[in-house]
Design a protein around this nucleic acid. Sequence first.
DNA 1: CGTGTTCTTGAAACTTGTCAAAGTTAGTGG
DNA 2: CCACTAACTTTGACAAGTTTCAAGAACACG
Lengths: 265, 265
Amino acid sequence: MSNPLSRRLARFAALTAEDHALLEDAGGERVRRVGAREDVFREGDRPRCLYLVLDGWAMRYKSLEDGRRQVLSFALPGDICDQHVLLLSRADHSMSALSATSVAEISATRISEIARASPRLLYALCLSNLVGQASQREWTINLGQRTALERMAHLICELFFRLRAIGLTHGNTCELPVTQATLADATGISAVHVNRTLQELRASNLITLRGKHLTIDDIEGLQSVALFNPGYLHLDEVERATQTARDGEPTTPPLLLAALAADGG
Amino acid sequence: MSNPLSRRLARFAALTAEDHALLEDAGGERVRRVGAREDVFREGDRPRCLYLVLDGWAMRYKSLEDGRRQVLSFALPGDICDQHVLLLSRADHSMSALSATSVAEISATRISEIARASPRLLYALCLSNLVGQASQREWTINLGQRTALERMAHLICELFFRLRAIGLTHGNTCELPVTQATLADATGISAVHVNRTLQELRASNLITLRGKHLTIDDIEGLQSVALFNPGYLHLDEVERATQTARDGEPTTPPLLLAALAADGG
DNA sequence: CGTGTTCTTGAAACTTGTCAAAGTTAGTGG
DNA sequence: CCACTAACTTTGACAAGTTTCAAGAACACG
């Protein structure tokens, strides 16, 4: 019940005891420890399995030929690297650990076993995938439309909300094991300006940031600066999904895949 | 054989005559004509079906409360709006036509029929979906790391390559029914600066752009300015997928959904 | 207790945005 | 088919935001 994948998927569907049991040994399948700054997989690698972050922070990123680098997303405990790695012949981006991290390697066949055994789990996996897409869209907007200050505030909001959803906050504080250089690669602003931007957020009494220790002093103020609306994170999708579990079929039209499972199962 | 969905999916898998037949009437299911600047669906709408662009150009976009707007992607003939609309209770972004456009409305049940009837089609649909995600990642990098000039060049490269793949180019020219204001919303730069940037591309003898008529004068030069690598568009994915069709099961580990279809079918 | 990484600061340069107005094009109705 | 209007493109001058470079301070690790 307490493994990260269970907790994650439980956000998207009301899982039964059997569902949890199914996920339980998936988490233990094969665990790999990755040190800070080490890659989990690299652009161009042949995909072998899905990676599930059990503990620690990771990021997905992609580089330009000349060395410029863009962080695509941060992966927190319970997050699965996106499924493209299984369908395409080569990974088109890399993933690396920001702190000491442990990741579970889940084979494709295991995933499909899980999905076939439980329509709820398939539904939850699809939703988890779609939430990843929604986040990528939000990052697109963040980079395209927001100012440096707004972007930083937005990123901090996202991380704080996500950490809170998985129980990794204490009141209004959390860890932020990310260097300013990495924040720069995530927000598309220079490292120097990240520094100035963080100072501005501090000066506005919105956050306190010392070392890797972040405190949100004024979450509403921060959200308002960031034009942050947590909807895209779908942190409470479970309400609708609960109906799914009850009726056997989702109340909203299912994605092609969810539909498949419902009919074909 | 000649409908846009067929052509699109044929890029991702070697389709049989039956596959094409299946797709044939899907395209005709229900066609809606949308005038320029008109919305196909709007953020907050309840999803009813998938939209397939048959003809004309459309865009997906999302707005900030204060009116700033980010284009998320352009949809050309053969493109499907992404599938999130079916799994989430509310659309989290809008889609609107850039020119007179016709879109087919494909119901969720129809999609799942198609997917269940042919593993190849399911596989192709999944790939189509993943290519959309890869594009979104590329846009993230574009906005985060490239300069205004590089971004414009990159966007033009993407559009030209995509148009060529669907036969909508004539030599090195194509239509570009997009105002500079829209290009601004897509590249995250101001409309005025878009204008200057286009002039710079013209001055470098890379493109000719008069009205809605675009000519690429030096595609290699443009790609090099843009740091453009067409790989993410997966314009030639069919090679691997051909194997799929032959062996009945993909040679690379299938996505959870493709796996489902292969086993459950 | 070094030593390398990360954070911070200042000044100057550069890119991009804003404002405002003029020119051009396209579409509509008389 | 012209005239008129609205939408779109182009221009210049200036302001603002952000980057770059360079150097010093703080911190973290072995």
